[in-house]
Write a protein that binds this DNA or RNA. Structure first.
Lengths: 128, 128
DNA sequence: GTTTGACTTAGAGTTAACTCCAGGTGTTAT
DNA sequence: ATAACACCTGGAGTTAACTCTAAGTCAAAC
């Protein structure tokens, strides 16, 4: 797969794909004889994983660390696990915070709905 | 309340409080005769609301719009409601995405836990 | 065989959201 | 009355995460 195909597949710009590789957010991708990236299935899995984690707000820096640990082999399994557990905790917290904010938004919107009804009443009264 | 107290109360830097006011993210705060901000309870409620919404990821730009609409009075009630509904929808989507990522993290961590066990087994075997 | 188009790299530019700084003013303590 | 301190403003600097640009290479089409 070339970069155009991968870009389309994951809806990430070619620039972003090159940027991710450059900073080590995905392991480096093989090139063909003329220097053009040739993405494997493995590469695609990484990209998909990283995209998913990024969309949930895990910082690039942390994910770079993860990829780097991965590249160092089995001795880093424990460290990778710890890293993921730490990120999971933070994610849980964020989700909980967002749920609370959501409740608050619901409440606020409900009050606005009430306000709109009130306003319509007063607007209509003169016509009656 | 002066800026130092408000800063402490909401755990926002004085710079951030001034910045929020400057860009219209909170309505402008009254000054005393010597030009120093004197925050009212109302001001504090705004700050708390904005902090909450920001922490859930609502963009500053949108919140500025909300504050601006609020400042224009009752004619903007409908528009404010629509804005909040739109943001709620996006928030719901983000929360759902994050939950999916959380599931994925759980799965990945579970596999790492398995891997750690396997590794311990092979490490221990020579000793037995 | 040269033009077109997709790719390459290195590095500069952008955006959102702060964060810091310089220079100035007003109140408080000595 | 002067030093210390908290505040003020306008504007510059920072950070994360892209995004764009310039200059170059290579394969394919005309």
């Amino acid at each position: 797969m070339n970069i155009a195909e991968v870009s389309k597949k994951f809806n990430l710009s070619q620039d972003t794909l090159r940027y991710y590789e450059r900073i080590g957010l995905i392991p480096s991708v093989n090139r063909n004889k003329s220097g053009i990236r040739d993405y494997t299935e493995e590469d695609c899995k990484w990209i998909e994983f990283i995209k998913c984690m990024r969309s949930a707000g895990l910082p690039i820096e942390v994910l770079i660390e993860y990829v780097s640990l991965f590249g160092q082999g089995d001795e880093t399994i424990e460290a990778r696990k710890e890293l993921l557990i730490e990120q999971r905790e933070q994610l849980i917290k964020r989700v909980e915070d967002m749920k609370k904010t959501l409740e608050r938004l619901n409440y606020k919107i409900a009050r606005y709905e009430q306000a709109v009804v009130e306003k319509e009443k007063t607007l209509k009264r003169p016509e009656n």
